[in-house]
Simulated assay, not measured.
Amino acid sequence: MLKEFKEFAMRGNVVDLAIGVVLGGAFGAIITGLVEGIINPIIGALTAGITIDELSANIAGVDMKYGMVLSAILKFIIIAFVIFLVVKAINKAKKPEAEPDPTTKVCPFCKTDIPIEATRCPNCTSELKA
């Protein structure tokens, strides 16, 4: 059982996932610092000292802190946008895969697919030029 677990843990996609989780957590901490350290104070300066996290509504004697939800949504949007930019850059950097050589061609007479080496169409028996 220990051997099976070692094989599972050392599989490439599991290691990649673990690295992604660790980097995602670190990136989340950076975004939290950005929102709480820079964006919230800017909003506080523009709104007489009220930051996003402090927004709340008192309903039937209970404080509904909707500002915390707004802050979480802002963090999510920033993270999603950065991930979008990273994936877009990676896709752009990838070399396009070469198209495989065709194995069939279209008969100019009956418009059916035939082997590329064919000199006569097996469907309409037309003679094909090389």
Rank of each mutant, 00 (worst) to 15 (best):
A130T: 10
L46S: 04
L128Q: 09
C110K: 01
K65S: 08
N58D: 08
Y66K: 09
D101P: 12
V14R: 09
R120A: 09
T32C: 00
I73W: 07
G25K: 00
L46I: 11
V14S: 05
E7L: 14
P41M: 10
S126N: 12
K3Q: 15
D101L: 13
A9F: 12
I116V: 15
I116H: 08
A45T: 01
G20V: 00
T51A: 07
V87L: 06
M68Y: 08
T112S: 07
F81T: 06
T125N: 09
I43K: 07
I38G: 02
I114N: 11
K105H: 08
M64Y: 14
K94I: 01
T125S: 11
K129A: 09
I38N: 04
N58F: 06
I30W: 05
A26F: 06
F5C: 11
A98C: 02
E127N: 10
G12C: 04
V22H: 00
E54K: 11
T51W: 05
E97P: 02
I50S: 07
E117L: 07
E4V: 10
P100F: 05
I79Y: 10
V86M: 06
A60D: 11
A72D: 07
V86F: 07
K6Q: 15
A45H: 03
V62F: 12
A9L: 13
L23G: 00
P96F: 06
P100I: 03
A118F: 01
I50Q: 13
A48L: 03
I78E: 01
I116L: 15
L23M: 01
D63I: 06
L55G: 12
M10L: 15
T32W: 03
G20L: 00
D16C: 03
F81G: 04
C107A: 14
K95Y: 03
C110F: 05
N123A: 13
